[in-house]
């Protein structure tokens, strides 16, 4: 059987990621670290793009779902890993993906729990409820001793590598793209454009919004798992409101609801963040100024040259 073109692309990316990853020992560790950060950022941004960009639901709690996934996945590898008595390779190639999946599922459940009641709220209200949810997650994590409380969770094995980060990123992009590029998927865009009209055309808008929210949360959770096993420790404070904003900014700079633009924005922002490090303490000042200037001059996003193309499936 011949795979559709889009799936061929996915396979190609996975193979390349695997190939490059095999030689990661020869890559400068700093570059490797940044590259993995880029992969995670693409996952975060593309998954949030489904919610904020394509479906038009403004979520400010993406870091919260990421935290849920990060902790779930890290708890699995740290508690179950040592007891299994198998080689590190098995842990990295079997237990780790399972933990990522778990992290994604728990985050998706959280997404369902938050989304189902709150998605009937619109615009700013939804933004603030998701923000509130993110803060609640943070406070809960700070208070649960089993996951390290405010001190954080340490000693997480470093299973994350180039292959996993870019495979996950590729799958995320593929899923978001695939969902949208179908007659069914145009419903997400219709919901974003005019909810009342969408409902009148027979679209179950609630279901679309929840689907977007749950799928988006799932990948945020998986990204969280990757992040946990990249950094080796987790700290509830790292998943605060500012982290959510960082992801939102990627989506907005990428042009809200554009696949490639958002990927580029994720890459640029991670790299920019690293570059600004040489400015040391002034990094955040420059970052915020940049944000304001961009909104004033290019509110439609940085990386939008063409208008959204209608696609034949």
């Amino acid at each position: 059987m011949v795979l559709p073109k889009s799936q061929l692309w996915l396979v190609v990316v996975l193979l390349v990621a695997g190939g490059v990853s095999a030689f990661s020992g020869r890559i400068d560790p700093y570059v490797l670290d940044v590259a993995m950060g880029v992969g995670i950022a693409i996952t975060q941004a593309s998954s949030l793009n489904l919610i904020n960009g394509f479906t038009g639901q403004f979520s400010l709690g993406h870091a919260g779902f990421m935290a849920v996934g990060a902790y779930s996945s890290a708890m699995l590898t740290t508690t179950l890993g040592p007891k299994l008595g198998v080689s590190t390779a098995v842990l990295q190639w079997v237990l780790f993906p399972a933990s990522l999946l778990l992290g994604g599922l728990v985050a998706a459940l959280a997404g369902l729990a938050v989304g189902a009641p709150s998605l009937r709220l619109k615009g700013d209200y939804l933004a603030i409820v998701t923000l509130g949810f993110g803060e609640i997650i943070k406070v809960i994590l700070q208070n649960v001793d089993a996951v390290g409380g405010a001190r954080g969770l340490v000693g997480i094995p470093d299973y994350t590598n180039l292959f996993w980060t870019f495979s996950v990123a590729a799958v995320t992009v593929y899923v978001v793209w695939g969902l949208l590029n179908s007659t069914y998927g145009r419903g997400f865009l219709a919901v974003a454009d005019d909810e009342v009209a969408a409902e009148a055309m027979g679209l179950n808008t609630t279901r679309y919004k929840i689907t977007a929210f749950v799928v988006g949360s799932f990948f945020a959770g998986v990204a969280g798992g990757l992040y946990a096993h990249l950094k080796g420790y987790l700290n509830p404070g790292g998943f605060d409101f500012n982290k959510s904003i960082e992801i939102v900014v990627m989506v907005i700079l990428g042009g809200m609801g554009r696949h490639v633009g958002v990927i580029i924005a994720a890459i640029v922002l991670v790299v920019l963040n690293e570059t600004l490090r040489s400015f040391g303490e002034y990094r955040m000042i420059l970052y915020s100024l940049l944000l304001i200037v961009l909104m004033l001059t290019r509110p439609q996003g940085l990386f939008t040259w063409t208008r959204r193309k209608p696609s034949a499936a």
Binding site: I245, V248, I285, Y287, S288, L289, L291, I292, M295, L296
Partner: peptide, 9 residues
């Protein structure tokens, strides 16, 4: 987003 930028600034 601009407001958030001002806040961070």
């Amino acid at each position: 987003i601009t407001a958030i930028g001002v806040s961070l600034l």
